[in-house]
Design a protein around this nucleic acid. Sequence first.
RNA 1: GCCAGAGUGGCGGAAUUGGCAGACGCGCUGGAUUCAAAAUCCAGUUGCCUUAACGGCAGUGAGGGUUCGAGUCCCUCCUCUGGUACCA
Length: 943
Amino acid sequence: MPRYNPAQIEPKWQAYWEENQTFRAPDLPGDEKLYVLDMFPYPSGDGLHVGHPEGYTATDIVCRFERMRGKSVLHPMGFDAFGLPAEEHAIKTNTPPRESTERNVATFRRQLKMLGFSYDWSRELSTTDVDYFRWTQWIFLLLFDTWYDTQQRRGRPISELPIPAEVQDEGEEAVRHYQNDFRLAFQSDALVNWCSKLGTVLANEEVIDGKSERGGYPVTRLPLRQWMLRITEYADRLEQDLELVNWSDSIKAMQREWIGRSTGAEVDFLIGDPAGEAAWREARAAAGFPRKPGDDVLRIYTTRPDTLYGATYMVIAPEHPFVERLTTAAQQSSVTEYCQQAAAKSDLDRTDLGKEKTGVFTGSFAINPVNGQPVPIWIADYVLISYGTGAIMAVPAHDTRDFEFAQQFEIPIICVVEPAEHEQLDAIRRGEVCLAGSGTAVNSGQYDGMTTGEFKTRIAADLRAQGLGQEAVNYKLRDWLFSRQRFWGEPFPILHELDDAGQPTGHLKPVDACDLPVDLPYLEDYKPHGRPEPPLGKAPDEWLYPVIDGKKYRRETNTMPQWAGSCWYYLRFIDPKNDQAFVDPEKEKAWMPVDLYVGGAEHAVLHLLYARFWHKVLFDRGYVSTPEPFARLINQGMILGEIEFTGFVAEDGSAVSVTNVTRDAEGRQVHKKTGAELTGIKLAADQVEKKGDSFVRKDDASIRVNSRAHKMSKSRGNVVNPDQIVTDYGADSLRLYEMFMGPLEAPKPWSMAGVNGVRNFLDRVWRMIVDANSETAILNPAVKDVDPTEEQSRVLHKTIKAVTHDFETIGFNTAISRMMEFVNYFTREATRPRSAMEQLVLLLAPMAPHICEELWKILGHDQTLAYAAWPTFDEALTQDATIEVPVQVLGKLRGKVTVAADISRDDLLAAAKSLENIQPWLDGKQIVKEIVVPGRLVNFVVR
RNA sequence: GCCAGAGUGGCGGAAUUGGCAGACGCGCUGGAUUCAAAAUCCAGUUGCCUUAACGGCAGUGAGGGUUCGAGUCCCUCCUCUGGUACCA
């Protein structure tokens, strides 16, 4: 075996690992456990993408590294195979979903094995396995059985829900209804996001800019009875517990933003008879702020109670229950028209037209509780019924949206906050410019002169004392719409009781845990039809209408969304074969939490928020031991296509500089001045050159071109296929290249030349150790059983130290650089100590396991190196005996002095001062200051 | 608009967190080897000025500041990427 041949080595070692179960994790860990998890893929029909191996290689390196350091490592892999994408693929290829899913899983499994990841494959699972989703259904039943105790701030069994006496008195039926109102899984008639193209409703999180996240199809609002999960009850804990985890700030920020906690106050404005104001105030002062507002007040939510004196109008959402009552006869027709228009608008329209504010006056007034002034009440769709109380006080002087609206409808603008310093202070005072920030109160009666912060605290206390308001917290997070009208998902383990006439009684019966799983029935036609009735409604009667204890039921025909299975798979990996529980408590306690979780940032809100929610419910109910599932999260950056140069040409073929290109309203690329449509053309690297900060055409340097890397996509034709890379360069080269490209978390452009570069490095490693001229696999004659020289030792120990540090901090690109330096050094050495070669093989093994196993064997070992001891270093040997210290004059480098590493401060200073090329810079000058940083530098400040 | 993150050679990227900017790789140039090529090995490679050799000046998106010393810290601005968008 003279030359490095990955095509031969790699399958051989993959077979070895599989036969010997090399990476099988123990049921319970030893002294130190490490649970490293990849976000499992959904097995698309396209097979693995080069983005997948990036994160998977990173976790694999960590696992292999830590195994060599003696840790018990759990590193599993599975497939997220239920849901829309899998079903869409099945429909497209006209295959039953289970069949096409299994085929895709097989492809993914083959590709993952081909890359040599050290997964414990005995734990493989798919969310579509009946034995798996049996427990997904079980957890759903747990959610159904749980209510959230806001006092204790935790989920509790529904049997422990206190039932008010008056409900108790009404009988069993009333109690049941009361309980249903508190369950974490509940049914609700609400306006939902309906996507007829996908034939299902979608969660808020799955709708982006009024279009479906998957497919980009239009989404409309439709009232439908749907299953919801009360994730909002956990909003504060989901937000606060972000403190407990080691995640990137940006992901935490995205979750925080999605949860959208805001603090402020609720305030009641009297809308009843103004003559009764005094009596109302008296009653309120005595009784305090009521939990639910009466019909005589309009309750608003504001984050700026300090601007109450500047409220010049109020707005209620078009869907607000008071619309009818507040509308005067004179305004009736315009209000009706406006509300109908608002209702007809889809979410997309509402945001699209968001630039121009619309609204209509009701004709009614409310009374401002702080000054008794009447305030006109408007209806406008910029106020959302689903947030806060669906009503606001508008303070145009200090809120940009209110300001816009007030300008449009010529409503007075009263400044009540003055900034400390502002260029347009006078304009702000006159209400001509909006100030959204904080400052000092003016025109606010007794509160004048207070800072915004003081004012907020004071007014909250005063309002509370008068029973007119109270502090309040609001979240943007909405309850999670959990049902889908599709076939390919987990059936709900819920039965609807039917009466003798076959009509639903409204009574829900959860399927007994011992009767789980509820499997999917066989359906001839499972395809969505664009109407809200689920396809499971066409299931055979034996499935659809079970009879239990003589009672007839109809099964729930909705299915769970794609996210259900991925909410708890990390727990099942710990105990994948258990048929008594979703996970054994002892094993759960031993392995959780996940120590390192790696995946794409596209799951920043959806998956990670949902999984954390389920985990907290399981935690509250005593089934898991940690409050958070994922202790550390790293998002790998996206791998982009190769850098492309794009030039623009007009219709007549003339080149146009990129500085003159813009996009018109329809998104077409047009000339900035003439508006003529332009075409982008791909230019080869040798057609362009760098000029200043940008690239220009070689044939005309005045024409600037675009240079950037794009997302890989089929339509762009820049997709890199991992199979091809493995064939051409080998799996180790692919792994190594993806780690060498740059920091794990950064987005990086692909470069074929770069793959060739790391392959070159592996060739050099091979030749450093193996005799490339021999027919058989024997050591390079330069490798000898000798002790390393002192210099060789220093190189070795420095490398061990640096690589170990880089592995600990996930700095894989620099770790590779260090090993390249090692190889560059030792290939120049005529004698290469075998021990040093062995140490390098161990260092490189986590990254390029196949070649290293082979080299390890050639170096005379008959066991896998997967559990060989990680190399250690001697700190003393990582320092050089002599060091070169830069010498500066006035901060500029003027010379270098070579001295002993442990030189004293004074000796270093003396050596620097006597340096020959320093003298001219010191001559005739006075040394004002001498800066000596031992081991680092000397700097003379002269005058 | 708002919130994150990032701007360093022809390219991907280093820089122990305030201490020699450009490690390592790609590409390019030259050389060795070869009948020739591939492969391999060696040397060079930020720009400008200058030298026989040395050396000097500038330089990390732009401008300002702090410091003996700034890619790194502070202020203002520009560009790009991702997220988000009437959430009161």
